[in-house]
């Protein structure tokens, strides 16, 4: 626990900066209100007011924390006001998208490593796909899939997969190619088949690369799922919560949804990290 000191210092610094920014950014409105009423405000009253506005420009940390508490613990989790409910909607789309995206990514990588034609034909499209802003293509995917009769979780999952397959392809291709010439020569001296080289050498060698890219992919999946919720008309999910918050100027609600999303991302990356550690330890590659 020697790291506790520095970690707490950084957290305290961020909170202090946040409070200072909140006072500074929200003071304009307080002063305006006071001027309109023909009053003068003391410094203490100014600070107190900037940290307790209903629709502040920048909500203070405790306001966000209170809202987060009220919308998670304070609500039934089936309620539409519950962030747990919205979080679950987003999480399910994220997990589905992550599964599709990483599965597709691994398959593409295997194909790319084993076939020159596949590398030449697939890789440029994979790269091109990532140069299109997801905000531009997400509504198209929703519309196209809706006209095909597909709605609900799957369109969001596909947008999520669209973002997450790419890091997996890149990481997995690097990983599958990581065995050096000597390792491959050794396999040749044993007259090993291509399949044996793949299962015994390339695949295990790719594990550390795969996990590194899965961590990026799972965070990208969450972003994809949230973006996928925006054009669907703000029905459910953290994306919907963000959109509704911005419609009605509910900055506190936006920030608590943002924080929930960040928490979810941290949990997902942490979960991948746990699987990584367990797997690499089992493989004897963690020291």
């Amino acid at each position: 626990m020697r790291a506790a000191g520095p970690v707490l210092t950084v957290v305290a610094a961020i909170l202090a900066l946040w409070y200072a920014a909140a006072i500074w950014m929200n003071s304009a409105w307080t002063l305006q209100q006071a001027a309109r009423a023909g009053e003068t405000v003391s410094a203490a009253a100014l600070v107190a007011d900037t940290l307790s506005q209903a629709r502040p420009r920048l909500p203070a940390p405790h306001q966000v924390a209170a809202d987060l508490w009220a919308s998670t613990v304070g609500q039934k989790i089936t309620s539409k006001r519950s962030l747990v409910y919205h979080g679950w909607v987003t999480l399910s789309a994220t997990l589905a998208g992550f599964a599709i995206g990483s599965g597709l990514g691994i398959l593409l990588a295997v194909g790319i490593v084993h076939s020159r034609a596949m590398e030449m034909s697939v890789m440029p499209w994979a790269i091109a796909s990532q140069t299109i802003p997801i905000l531009a293509i997400a509504p198209m995917i929703i519309v196209v899939l809706h006209s095909l009769g597909v709605s609900g979780l799957l369109p969001k999952a596909i947008i999520s997969a669209y973002l997450s397959f790419f890091p997996v392809v890149v990481g997995m291709v690097t990983g599958l190619r990581s065995p050096d010439a000597m390792q491959l020569d050794l396999m040749r001296t044993w007259n090993a088949s291509r399949g044996q080289v793949f299962w015994q050498l390339r695949l295990p060698a790719s594990a550390p690369f795969l996990f590194a890219s899965l961590k990026i992919a799972v965070a990208a999946s969450l972003v994809g799922a949230i973006v996928g919720e925006l054009p669907t008309g703000a029905v459910a999910g953290l994306g919907a919560r963000l959109l509704a918050g911005s419609y009605y100027g509910q900055t506190v609600q936006i920030w608590s949804a943002l924080l929930m999303a960040a928490l979810l991302a941290a949990l997902l990356v942490g979960a991948v990290g746990l699987v990584q550690r367990a797997t690499l330890r089992r493989m004897g590659m963690a020291r």
Partner: peptide, 23 residues
């Protein structure tokens, strides 16, 4: 080869066993 080139994910016995498995 000049480098031992053992697979880090296999034990010593596992490494020695590898060519036998392949064959």
């Amino acid at each position: 080869f000049q480098a031992a080139g053992l697979y880090p994910w296999r034990t010593i016995a596992g490494n020695v066993r590898l060519p036998l498995e392949i064959m």
